[in-house]
Amino acid sequence: MELRHLQAFVTVAEDLNFRRAAERLQMSQPPLSQQIKRLEREVGVPLLRRTTRQVALTTAGEAFLAEARRALRAAQAAPQAARQAAAGQIGVVRLGFSGPTSHEVLVLMTRKFRERRPHVRLEIHGPVFGGELVERLNRDEIDAGLIRLPVAGSGIQVRELTRHPITVALPAAHPLATRREVCLLDLRDEPVVSHPTNRGAGIVSLIHSAFLRHGSTPNIVQEAPDTHTILSLVGAEVGIGFVPASAGHLKVPGVVLLPVSDIPPLPLALAWRKEDANPALHALIDLLDEISADCRAQADGSP
C-alpha cells in the first residue's frame, strides 16, 4: 500500500467527485480511478459507492478514511521528527545522580536544560552511589550521571562542574561545635559514621586519603546508606560524619556543620559514555560551560 494511493483515496473521499479530485491531484481521471480500484483490491472491500450521479463512502470507506488520514499525518510528521531528533530537539536523556549533596546542581541543570530543550524528556534516576553510576553507564541504563570524582573505568568521559568543600557534622553538644573551623588533628580519635566503603562513594576515598596524610585512618564505627542518614546518626550522637558543604540544605536538628581546613574540596562532574551518539545527550553536554559558570556564581552568592 503506497502513500500516493492513500492520498488519492482521501482526496476523492473529501470531494466525492473523481474529476475534481483528479484536478486537485494534478492527474487525469482514469489513472485516479485505477489507483482507487487497486486500493480496494488490496483492502479487500469496497470503499466507495459509485453511480452515474454520485460517489459516496461505504461504511468500510468511512473507517478507512480516518486511518488513512492518520497515516498521512504520521508520514508528513516523520521527516520533521527525524530532523528534530538529529538536532537534539526531541528525545530522552536518562540522568543519574549520586545523592542529596548534588541536588542543587541537579535542579540547576534540569531547569536550564528544560529552558533550552523543552521537548526533550529528562528522566532522573537515583540517588545512586558513584561506583554504581559508572556500572549503570557501562550497562547503558543511563545516558549520563552527576558523579563525584575521581571516576574509575575506561570509556567514560567526565566534565567537572563544581567543587564542594568538606565539612564535619558534629552533634550540637560536641565540644568542638562552637568552633568556626576544625582540622583533621582535632578529629583524629573521633568515632566516624561513614558512607559505605564498598559502593564507590568518592567522599570515602577522599576522607581516607586525608587521614593517611596525617598517618592515621578514620575510626569508623558505623556505615550509613546516604548523607541524610549520616546526619541523623550524628544528631543521635553515634559519632561524627564527613559530608560536602552542599549537605547544609538538609538541616537535620541537633547537627552542626563545620569546615575542615585540611581536606580538599570534592569535585562534582557529569559523566557519560564516550561513544554515546545520542543527540539529546550532546545538547546537554553543550550546556556544561554555562552550567559550570552558574555553579560558580551560585557558590559565590552572585545573583
Rank of each mutant, 00 (worst) to 15 (best):
E2R: 15
L3H: 06
L3W: 08
F9G: 02
L16M: 08
L16P: 01
R19W: 12
R20Q: 09
R20F: 04
S28Y: 07
K37M: 06
R38K: 15
E40Q: 05
G44V: 00
V45C: 10
R49S: 03
V55T: 15
G61D: 00
G61K: 00
F64P: 02
R70L: 04
L72Y: 05
A78D: 14
A78T: 04
Q80V: 04
R83S: 15
A87P: 09
G88Y: 02
I90W: 03
S102N: 07
S102D: 05
H103F: 09
E104Q: 15
E104H: 15
L108P: 07
M109R: 07
M109E: 08
K112G: 00
K112C: 03
V120K: 13
R121T: 08
G126P: 11
G130P: 02
R139Q: 08
D143M: 14
I147G: 03
R148H: 09
V151Q: 09
A152M: 13
G153W: 07
I156P: 01
Q157T: 15
V158F: 08
P165M: 03
T167R: 10
H174W: 07
R179E: 12
R180M: 14
R188V: 00
D189V: 08
D189F: 14
P191E: 10
P191M: 07
T197R: 12
R199A: 01
G202C: 10
S205L: 14
H208Q: 10
A210F: 06
F211I: 04
R213Q: 11
H214I: 12
P218Q: 13
N219D: 10
V221C: 06
Q222G: 07
H228F: 08
T229Y: 00
I230W: 00
L233H: 12
V234R: 07
G235K: 11
G235H: 12
G235F: 04
V238Y: 11
G239M: 12
S246N: 10
G248Q: 15
K251Y: 08
L257T: 08
L257R: 02
L257C: 11
L258P: 12
P265G: 09
P267A: 13
A269T: 11
A269W: 02
W272H: 10
W272S: 06
K274Q: 10
L281Q: 01
L284R: 02
I285P: 00
S292F: 09
A293C: 05
C295Y: 06
A297Y: 05
A297D: 09
D300R: 11
P303T: 07
